[in-house]
């Protein structure tokens, strides 16, 4: 027997499903459009924007790559890998100190590190420019490495510390009984146990660094050293009349992180959950 309630329920479910699917289309279609535009010709781009490309010009990708996107990509990889490693290592090291070692003024230290979460990078921008110039680091790899690491430590330490606090104290005691030093306990016992949160923070930091724009724009000045977000805007102004190549460059810039997200989705969501749950 079909009740009024169950009809409403089915209708409601149908409506919800339709809405969720429509939203998925809104999310995906622009991305699909971006990919398709990357293989069109300029004339097609200015024609019917919904049309499929007549001939698939994959050579646009090669052109984009040769016009600097290849170099930008390499720079982005270099900066992302080094700053992520530095950030996660320094943060895990600090988190260990904050949770499992007795240190003087630990509360002050903790507040100092975590308060960094609340500070907007824009505020420090102008002094940082002068500082890096005075240090001779302006427009170098080191500028970005230092900035990305410094500004990401608070958040990363936060997440790792929260995770470490949950590890039972017996772990350290067992390590201590074995005669392991604190440093050895960190490397051999605690760090491996923190693997899930480490993976999560690595993914979050990659996401941040890969996409960062403000510092990359201000602290690098073109030439051979430029990360993707800034390089892409250059590609736009340099080869503006060749828009399909710009689209191809955008796809090259976006793809690695999307792939990474799907590959590490499990860790990623778990990382967020861990962060929230504490």
């Amino acid at each position: 027997m079909v009740t009024r309630g169950s009809v409403l329920l089915v209708l409601g479910r149908g409506f919800v499903s339709a809405f969720l699917l429509a939203l998925a289309v809104v999310v995906l279609y622009p991305l699909l459009w971006m990919v398709l535009n990357g293989v069109k010709s300029n004339a097609e781009l200015f024609g019917n924007p919904f049309a499929l490309p007549v001939a698939w010009r994959w050579e646009n990708y090669a052109t984009a790559w040769n016009r600097g996107v290849g170099d930008y990509l390499m720079t982005s990889v270099l900066v992302t890998v080094t700053s992520t490693l530095a950030t996660v290592f320094i943060s895990a090291w600090a988190a260990y100190g904050l949770t499992r070692v007795r240190i003087p003024f630990s509360r002050t230290v903790l507040i100092l590190i975590l308060a960094g979460l609340m500070l907007a990078p824009t505020v420090a921008l102008i002094p940082l420019v002068r500082m890096f110039q005075a240090m001779g680091l302006y427009n170098t790899f080191w500028a970005l490495l230092i900035l990305y690491t410094a500004f990401r430590i608070p958040f990363t330490t936060f997440l790792i510390r929260a995770y470490m606090m949950d590890l039972p104290a017996e772990v350290d005691e067992a390590a201590a009984v074995d005669g392991a030093s604190k440093a050895r306990a960190f490397w051999q016992v605690i760090l491996p146990m923190c693997r899930p949160i480490i993976v999560s923070t690595v993914i979050l930091n990659i996401l941040f660094t890969w996409n960062e724009y403000l510092f990359a724009m201000i602290f690098t000045s073109g030439g051979d050293f430029q990360t993707l977000p800034v390089g892409l805007t250059n590609l736009m102004s340099r080869h503006g009349t060749d828009y399909p190549v710009v689209f191809a460059g955008m796809v090259i810039a976006a793809a690695p992180v999307i792939v990474l997200f799907f590959a590490g989705q499990r860790y990623f969501i778990r990382g967020l959950a861990d962060g929230i749950g504490k």
């Binding site: 420019v129 002068r130 890096f132 110039q133 302006y138 427009n139 201000i218 000045s221 073109g222």
Partner: peptide, 11 residues
């Protein structure tokens, strides 16, 4: 923009 940035930072 680039010129101003380089000038401001004396670079």
């Amino acid at each position: 923009d680039k010129t101003k940035t380089l000038t401001a930072s004396q670079a």
